[in-house]
Structure formats: structure tokens, C-alpha cells
Simulated assay, not measured.
Amino acid sequence: MDAMKIANSIPMWIACGIPVILVIAQALIFAKKSYSAGKKIGLTEKQMKNAIKSSAITSIGPSIVILSGMLSLLITVGGPMAWMRLSLIGSVMFESIAAGFGTASVGVQLGADTLTPLALDIAVWTMILGSIGWIIFATISASRMDKVQHKISGGDPAKLMAISSAAIIGAFSSMSSSHLIKLNKNSVACVLGAVFMAILLTISEKKNIKWLKEWNLTISILAAMIITAVI
């Protein structure tokens, strides 16, 4: 049987749809609990609505990047699996590499050779098993993170914020550096994104343009993508 017919079959849509529904339900539960917690700590309706609006706008840029990656994954492993994997994990780079490793193990080059049912099967298992460690670790450690944070920061909120900021900067620097050293279009997009972000942040802060503060990430990502694609 044709592997792509299996990949885009109704049973696959059903199987992949179940975890996506669970993710949506989880997001709604978290949103509801966060809203209730906001009221308890004294946040106003306006503050919470502004936070929701800002978060939604900020997520547009990264979501477009994920969508573009999903289109390439859709061609190689089918619509249901691409939809499900990027709804749960969201890492285009990991999914593509994992699927490629899986198919290569049975002698099929992803995107170049004709996908076989066995290669599809191995690709799916590689993507799932390769990321299951994150889920297990998060499940086990989530309830203990308060103690870990307190131990690391010594109960000092300022120190905890400094550590958290350093961790975020380190994570994004690690991801960016892998593109910068390649000296290709990825490097150009990375530099352009940083330049646009720096300019927009400076303008929005100096002029106190509220809407620009919300849209600067999305504008930077789209501008860098479009310019890189053109050149």
C-alpha cells in the first residue's frame, strides 16, 4: 500500500486528532485557572485582557514560522502527523531531523526517495520516542520546581529573575549561533531579525508606542523571512 495514503488516511486523522484535542482542552483549563488566579491576586479585568491580547499578538510571528515548517513536514510524512507533532512540540527543526533519521535507518532519504510504509512507521516512532523524554521529565519535575527555584535563588526574587533571564538568553543564543556560523540564508535571516527587533524595541520604548510593543516580534520575524526569501 502507498505510504502517503496511509499517512493521510482517516484512521491517522482520528489518531492524531485525539492528542490535539487534549492539548486544546489543556490550554483552555490553564487559561481559565490563570484568569481565576489573576482575580485572586488583585489584577483588574483590563490588565488581564491586555495580557491576553498581547500574548495572542506576540504568538503570531512564531506561529507563522511553525506553519511554514508544517507545510514541508506535511509533504514528507502526511497532514495528520505534521498537524499533531507541531501542535504538541512545535519544533520544526527537531521534527524534520527526527523523521529524516528514522527513514534513513531503513535506507530511505526523506524528501528525495519514495516513502515506504516501513519508513513512515520508523519516522513516526522516531519523532515520538525522541521527544517523549521532555514530557516524562516535565511530568515528574513540575510539582517540585518551586523547591528547586527556592534552592537555586535562596528565596531572592531578583536573583531568580536574573537566573531565568540568563537561561532564556543562553537558550536563544545557542539556537541562533548554530545558524550564524553556517554563513548562509539562515545567517542572513537571523541577523536581519535581530536588527529589526532592536530597531523596533528602541522606537517603541522611546515613543511609548503600545501597539508596536505587541507587534515587534511578529514584524521582525516576517520582515526577516520576506527579505531573506527575496535575496
Rank of each mutant, 00 (worst) to 15 (best):
L222I: 15
A31V: 05
Q26I: 15
V65T: 12
S55L: 01
V188A: 10
S87K: 05
E45W: 02
M175H: 02
I52S: 05
A3P: 07
I227F: 12
G111F: 04
A3H: 02
A194D: 07
N208D: 12
L110F: 13
I163L: 06
I14Q: 11
T116F: 03
S178E: 02
W83A: 05
I227N: 03
L74R: 13
G17Q: 00
A112F: 01
L71A: 05
W83P: 08
K33C: 03
S131P: 03
P19Y: 09
T103R: 09
M145R: 04
T139M: 14
S36T: 14
K182G: 00
G42A: 11
W83H: 06
I226Y: 14
S153Q: 01
S131A: 11
G42E: 11
M1I: 03
S143C: 03
L217Q: 05
G155E: 07
W211I: 15
G193F: 10
K207D: 03
I227G: 08
W125N: 14
G78T: 04
W211S: 12
V124L: 12
F94M: 14
W134L: 15
Y35L: 14
A56N: 13
A224M: 12
F30E: 08
A31D: 04
M48D: 04
S165F: 13
K39W: 02
L217E: 01
A37W: 08
S176C: 03
I132W: 06
K207Q: 07
G130E: 07
